[in-house]
């Protein structure tokens, strides 16, 4: 510090440092991007439960009773509801990816609008699906 005062020309300005976790401002575009990856890979959990449930249905009454009890328990509801949101989010983010791949919507205002469309759209589609299949 003392050196910096004595020699102001050495470090004349407080120059930006690389993003620091404590002050790093996350952006909508990066959050919606990483969510695409998280939802896509996380969907394996719901898939495993669904396929296990289907295998049990194909096997026997007693096996189905076990798998169905898990699939329709609070845990099953949690997994399938989270997976439903995840699949709709991944769906919309995938469509957005196709738009980006076509070289469209890459400017920041449009990209952020598309990001909100993914977030809001996924919640709306999740709610609609739950209402439709009840």
């Amino acid at each position: 510090m003392a050196d910096a005062k004595r020699l102001p020309s050495v470090r004349p300005h407080a120059r930006p440092l690389s993003p620091h976790l404590q002050i790093y401002r996350i952006q909508l575009t990066s959050v919606t991007s990483i969510l695409t990856r998280i939802t896509g890979n996380g969907l394996i959990v719901g898939t495993l439960l669904a396929v296990w449930w289907l295998l049990a249905a194909a096997t026997s009454d007693s096996y189905f009773a076990v798998a169905d009890a898990v699939a329709t328990s609070w845990f099953g509801d949690l997994v399938f509801t989270a997976s439903l949101w995840a699949i709709w989010y991944h769906y919309l983010a995938g469509l957005r990816h196709l738009v980006f791949d076509a070289g469209r919507g890459l400017d920041i205002p449009t990209a952020e609008k598309l990001g909100w469309a993914c977030i809001i759209g996924s919640v709306v589609l999740t709610a609609i699906t739950i209402l439709l299949v009840q």
């Binding site: 329709t72 439903l84 699949i87 769906y91 995938g94 439709l132």
Partner: peptide, 21 residues
Amino acid sequence: SAVGLALLVPVWLYIFGSALG
């Protein structure tokens, strides 16, 4: 595969969701 799934997924969600339970 993304385009294929875009067509398959909505219909499948309805069928699976209706069957579940």
